[in-house]
């Protein structure tokens, strides 16, 4: 089983946090099964069996024809964080790195997506954690993802519906965060289709890089 020296407790991801995607989906949100747009961050866990590392080869799930990947800034919590304000939130961050979320294509956001999101080894995090004091404003960062050397996705974090400090504050009022918990704050709405053997690289210029490959 995979292990990861960075993630120690919980790995919480935020879906539907790309403001462009949210705007484009408003009509869909008013229909069943949603009936209304989300009023809160849409959160999901990547459990222990998914945790993986820089350089890891990602297993292709048996019987599945398609996979997608999304990349997110990964906020590594540095100290216990319980019911903090957005103003204070960044002082609880230990550092920043990147996360890849490999999953099955998502058809619906209505029910928890255990089948799609809990594949073994599907959440590499790493490699290095950049200390929080070296990143003045996470909203100024851009996550760029390449597949086999071609840029497929760019997400400036100024485009997040909810900012890093807002998310830390809201999540810390649901669950106490501990040192080594990781919050993946947002993915580009359209995730990227990948094929067997693809090399997936994400980077935040000057901060972090994460390289993975799909198994043949």
């Amino acid at each position: 089983m995979n292990s990861n020296p960075i993630v120690k407790g919980k790995l919480v991801c935020v879906a539907l946090n790309d403001a462009e995607q949210l705007a484009a989906m408003q009509a869909e949100f008013s229909q069943p099964p949603y009936k209304a747009a989300p009023t809160q961050p849409v959160l999901y866990f990547k459990p222990h069996n998914t945790w993986n590392t820089e350089g890891a080869v990602i297993e292709w799930p048996a019987d599945e024809a398609a996979m997608v990947v999304g990349a997110s800034l990964a906020v590594v919590i540095g100290q216990e964080c319980c019911r903090v304000s957005a103003d204070d939130a960044l002082s609880y961050v230990g550092g920043y790195t990147l996360l890849h979320d490999f999953s099955l294509p998502e058809q619906s956001y209505y029910r928890p997506d255990i089948k799609g999101k809990c594949l073994d080894g599907s959440a590499p995090v790493g490699a290095a954690v950049v200390p929080a004091d070296q990143v003045a404003d996470p909203a100024a960062l851009t996550v760029v993802t390449q597949v086999n050397g071609t840029t497929v996705s760019e997400l400036p974090l100024s485009q997040l519906e909810r900012s890093v400090p807002e998310l830390i504050s809201i999540v810390s009022r649901i669950m106490t965060l501990q040192a080594g918990d990781v919050l993946a704050v947002g993915f580009r709405g359209e995730r990227t289709a990948v094929q067997r053997g693809d090399r997936v690289t994400s980077a935040i210029a000057g901060v972090a890089e994460l390289n993975n490959q799909l198994a043949d």
Binding site: V12, A15, L16, P33, Y34, K35, A36, P38, T39, Q40, V42, L43, Y44, F45, Y109, Y110, R111, P112, D113, I174, M175
Partner: peptide, 9 residues
């Protein structure tokens, strides 16, 4: 809410 219901909140 009807997103990943029952949601983490």
């Amino acid at each position: 809410e009807n997103y990943y219901r029952p949601n983490l909140r």
